[in-house]
Amino acid sequence: MLITTNEVKQKLIESLNLEDLTPDDIDDNTPLFNEGLGLDSVDAIELIVALDTAYNIKFENMNELKEIFANISNLTDYINKNLKR
Rank of each mutant, 00 (worst) to 15 (best):
S41L: 07
K81E: 15
L2D: 11
N61V: 09
K11G: 01
E60Y: 03
S41Y: 08
K9F: 11
D43V: 05
R85W: 03
N17I: 03
T22Q: 05
K66F: 12
I72N: 11
N82P: 00
D25L: 09
L65F: 10
S15C: 13
D24S: 13
N56T: 10
P23L: 10
D25Q: 01
A44S: 13
N6R: 11
V49L: 13
E19C: 01
E7K: 12
F33P: 04
Q10S: 14
R85I: 14
E67W: 05
D27V: 04
I57P: 04
P31D: 14
A54H: 03
I57C: 06
E67P: 00
E64W: 00
A70P: 00
I45P: 01
I3K: 15
A70I: 02
N56P: 02
F59D: 08
R85H: 07
E46R: 03
V42K: 05
K11Q: 00
F59T: 11
L37D: 10
I57E: 00
S73G: 05
K66G: 01
T4E: 04
M62P: 00
M62C: 01
E46Y: 01
N61D: 15
E7H: 09
D77R: 10
I48F: 03
N71H: 10
E46P: 00
L75N: 08
I13S: 04
N29R: 13
K11V: 13
K81C: 04
D28P: 10
D24W: 02
I48E: 07
N63T: 14
L37F: 02
D24Y: 06
N17G: 14
L21S: 08
P23D: 03
P31E: 12
L12Q: 04
N63S: 12
I3N: 12
L83D: 09
I13A: 04
E7Q: 15
Q10F: 01
A54V: 07
L39H: 09
L83W: 06
L2P: 15
K66H: 08
N71F: 09
M1Q: 11
K11R: 04
T53P: 01
I48L: 02
K66R: 13
P31R: 13
S15F: 06
F59G: 11
L18P: 04
N34A: 14
T53A: 09
L2G: 03
E67V: 08
F33Y: 13
L16C: 06
A50C: 07
F33M: 02
D40L: 07
I3A: 14
G36V: 08
D25F: 03
E19T: 15
L21R: 07
P31G: 00
K84S: 14
L39Q: 00
D24K: 15
N63V: 08
R85K: 11
K9D: 08
Y78N: 10
L18E: 09
V8F: 05
V49F: 13
N29T: 12
E60V: 12
N82V: 12
D52S: 11
F33N: 03
D25I: 06
I3R: 14
N80W: 14
V8G: 10
D43A: 03
L37C: 06
I68Y: 07
